[in-house]
C-alpha cells in the first residue's frame, strides 16, 4: 500500500488538489478488488501481482468521502446511480426494485452480504472484470456511464467503457461519477452459473431485459458475463428476438444464436466449450422465465 493517502471531502476539492498528490495515483472506493488482489499473493512471495501497478502507486485517493458520488436519484426518464453507491444500497433501494429488474435479480449473486456492504457499483465497473455481476446486469438495463475529469464530463454506453479484462477507456485520473439508467417498462432475468448457488465467481451468466408489445417483443437487451474479454452485449441475438413472439421455439433459436456470439476461454473456473453451451441454456431459461411472467427468477 502507498505511503500517502488522501481523502478529499468533495469532488471540487479533489480536482483542486489533484496536482499536489504527486506521481502515480489510484482511486480507492470500496477496496474489495484493489486490496484483495494484493492480499491474495502467495505466502512468502513479496512481489505484488506481476505487471500490476500496485507497487508503483505512490498515492491512493480515497473517494469514499465524496458525497457527489452517493445516492440514487430519479429523473423523469432515468435513474441516476452514484458511482459510490454500495451494492447493499442498491439492494435496499425501492427505486432499483421498481425500475431495474435485471439488476435486482443479479444483486443476490453479487459476492456475500458483507462484501456488498463494502463494494461500490463504480468500483465494480472500474475493475473491468468480465465476470462482474452488477455491471453485466446494468449493461442489459441499457445503462450509460458518466465520467468526469476536472469538471469535464463525458457519457458512454456502459459496454463501451471496457477494452479488455481489467482494462477500461478511462483516461489518467478520470473518475466514474454515475450511471444513468433509462426507465423503460421491461421485465428481466439474471441467471448465473457458478460453483455454488451463491457466493462464487460465475462460469457464465446471462442478463436479459425485455419489453413486450402485446405478444411480440418490442425491445430486448441481452448481456453476458464471463464468456468474453469484456461484459458482452449479444446484439445479433437481440436483433433476432426483436419483433418476434416470445415462445419456446424462438427462445431455442435465440439460444443457438447466442452461442455464436460469445468467445469464452478455458481457465481455472471452467472450460470454453462448456461455457459456450451454458450461454444457450441460460438464455433459453431466462427467456422462458420472462415469458411465463416470472420476472427476475434465479
Amino acid at each position: 500500500m502507498p505511503p500517502i493517502v488522501v481523502k478529499p471531502p468533495t469532488l471540487q476539492a479533489l480536482w483542486r488538489s489533484l496536482p499536489s498528490f504527486g506521481g502515480a495515483r489510484r482511486y480507492l472506493a470500496g477496496g474489495t478488488d484493489l486490496v484483495a488482489g494484493a492480499n491474495a499473493a502467495p505466502a512468502g512471495v513479496k512481489a505484488r501481482p506481476k505487471g500490476g501497478s500496485f507497487d508503483r502507486t505512490e498515492v491512493w485517493v480515497d473517494i469514499s468521502g465524496l458525497k457527489e458520488l452517493r445516492g440514487i436519484k430519479e429523473t423523469k426518464t432515468s435513474l441516476m446511480i452514484g458511482a459510490g453507491a454500495k451494492i447493499a444500497e442498491l439492494e435496499a433501494s425501492p427505486l432499483v426494485r421498481r425500475w431495474l429488474p435485471v439488476l435486482s435479480a443479479a444483486i443476490p449473486h453479487f459476492a456475500s452480504p458483507s462484501l456488498r456492504n463494502m463494494a461500490t457499483i463504480g468500483g465494480n465497473a472500474a475493475n473491468a472484470s468480465p465476470c462482474a455481476d452488477a455491471v453485466c446486469a446494468l449493461c442489459a438495463e441499457k445503462a450509460q456511464v458518466l465520467l468526469e475529469f476536472k469538471g469535464k464530463r463525458r457519457k458512454l454506453a456502459l459496454p463501451a467503457l471496457f477494452k479488455g479484462p481489467k482494462k477500461t477507456v478511462l483516461r489518467k485520473d478520470e473518475l466514474i461519477v454515475a450511471f444513468e439508467v433509462p426507465k423503460w417498462k421491461h421485465s428481466g432475468a439474471y441467471l448465473k452459473l457458478g460453483p455454488r448457488s451463491y457466493f462464487g465467481i460465475s462460469k457464465a451468466a446471462v442478463a436479459a431485459a425485455l419489453e413486450m408489445d402485446g405478444e411480440k417483443v418490442r425491445s430486448v437487451c441481452i448481456a453476458l458475463a464471463s464468456v468474453a474479454p469484456v461484459p458482452l452485449l449479444a446484439v445479433k441475438t437481440a436483433n433476432y428476438l426483436c419483433g418476434r413472439m416470445l415462445n419456446e421455439e424462438n427462445a431455442r433459436t435465440a439460444a443457438a444464436l447466442v452461442k455464436t456470439e460469445v468467445s469464452p476461454i478455458t481457465d481455472v473456473r471452467s472450460e470454453a466449450g462448456y461455457r459456450r453451451e451454458m450461454c444457450g441454456v441460460l438464455l433459453e431459461r431466462a427467456l422462458n422465465s420472462i415469458a411465463s411472467g416470472v420476472s427476475g427468477i434465479n
Binding site: M1, V5, L28, G31, T32, V35, A36, N39, W60, D62, S64, A88, S112, P113, S114, L115, N117, M118
Partner: peptide, 21 residues
C-alpha cells in the same frame, strides 16, 4: 468471513480494509 466486524454500522471484512481507511 471469519474477520467480520461491524464497520460504521454494517458488517464488513476487516482483512480487506486498509487500516488507515
Amino acid at each position: 468471513g471469519s474477520c467480520t466486524v461491524i464497520f460504521n454500522g454494517k458488517p464488513a471484512l476487516a482483512c480487506l480494509i486498509p487500516a488507515f481507511t
